[in-house]
């Protein structure tokens, strides 16, 4: 009789835990990672493995320093951060670059703020932006994708978005980009970060996550739609200067960002309404940076900026509590 558990209600708990979510996201990232491995070969495998191992190692170190025990190591968040970071790096990233990225992601962005749940910015994204600002040359030399090879030699090549920005600066028009086949970036046969090259594989992962209820449709759909609609409007206004919306869909880190980074639980709004605001905001900032900014790609910056706005969004998008007058009723 003395052995009964006297915990408060409810006595039933769902089987979906943090681990479920983390490992589902990792699973959903695998198609994208696999495409990266196929086109970038051994190099990609090296980057992914190193990034994951280092992130887990630093997570363990941080937990040790903070005296938290190794229990949280099992939640998979460090593995996920490592994988996401790797997918945001060029496939020829040197080891020291990955090391710095992991330090920034795990120590500076996550554990300085208190570990999983307390960080206000997406660790992998902060690491990516830190590296991009610190080492722009290394971070923007993308190897050309080719079918699977064991060779570590690479030829670097600009991304379609980079080409577009250059051409605009130089000639005031889109140049070759206007006529390129959009099937290549859709499948993944164009330059870019390791994990962002295949819109198709990333979309598949996104559909899996939404179907399994790990993420909701709000952020990815509003994010991608906003980018589509805005680039479409500009394209209609001046197709010489602005690329087609489909081009913006399939190039750069949009899919990776919208599906896997913007939806990060910890750093995105919690209410459905807030998620929509967040998605639209991310989309608008991405478009502005891509079309008018100094950098060719704006997904990382857009998401980080909106991460900063998340507490504010949450505060102003509280759902109407049951039994309270709706806004319309309150006015009447």
């Amino acid at each position: 009789m003395t052995n009964t558990v006297l915990s408060p209600a409810p006595h039933l708990r769902t089987t979906k835990t943090i681990e479920t979510a983390m490992y589902s996201v990792i699973l959903a990232l695998l198609p994208g990672a696999a495409v990266g491995m196929y086109f970038f070969g051994l190099n990609a495998i090296r980057v992914i493995a190193l990034s994951i191992v280092l992130c887990v190692a630093f997570e363990a170190l941080a937990l040790r320093i903070r005296g938290r025990g190794m229990e949280p190591l099992k939640d998979g968040s460090a593995v996920l951060t490592g994988l996401l970071l790797a997918m945001n790096l060029p496939s020829n990233s040197p080891a020291w670059l990955i090391l710095i990225g992991c330090v920034v992601a795990i120590l500076m962005t996550k554990h300085v703020y208190g570990g999983l749940g307390y960080n206000s910015f997406n660790p992998a994204l902060v690491a990516r932006v830190f590296l991009l600002i610190s080492f722009p040359v290394v971070m923007t030399s993308w190897p050309e994708p080719k079918s699977f090879t064991l060779s570590l030699d690479t030829v670097t090549k600009a991304t379609p978005l980079g080409d577009m920005k250059m051409s605009l600066l130089l000639n005031g028009n889109l140049g070759d980009i206007a006529n390129m086949s959009l099937m290549d970036p859709f499948i993944g046969r164009l330059g870019g970060s390791l994990g962002e090259i295949s819109a198709l594989a990333l979309l598949a992962g996104g559909i899996f996550l939404i179907a399994r209820g790990i993420i909701t449709w709000h952020i990815p759909v509003t994010y991608i739609t906003t980018v589509f609609v805005m680039t479409w409007i500009y394209w209609l206004l001046d197709p010489v200067k602005y690329a087609s919306p489909v081009f913006h869909m399939v190039t750069g880190g949009l899919m990776l960002g919208a599906i896997f980074m913007a939806t990060d639980y910890v750093t995105s709004p919690i209410t459905p309404k807030g998620m929509i605001v967040f998605g639209v905001g991310c989309g608008a900032i991405t478009v502005f940076i891509r079309l008018f900014g100094g950098y060719p790609e704006g997904v990382s910056f857009a998401i980080l900026l909106m991460n900063a706005a998340t507490p504010l969004i949450d505060r102003y998008t509280q759902p109407r509590v049951f039994g309270y007058p709706t806004r319309k009723e309150a006015k009447a």
Binding site: I133, S134, F135, V138
Partner: peptide, 15 residues
Amino acid sequence: YTDMLVMILPPGAFL
């Protein structure tokens, strides 16, 4: 050594 440019940019000051 590859310069860690962010450190001489404004964010580096905060870091």
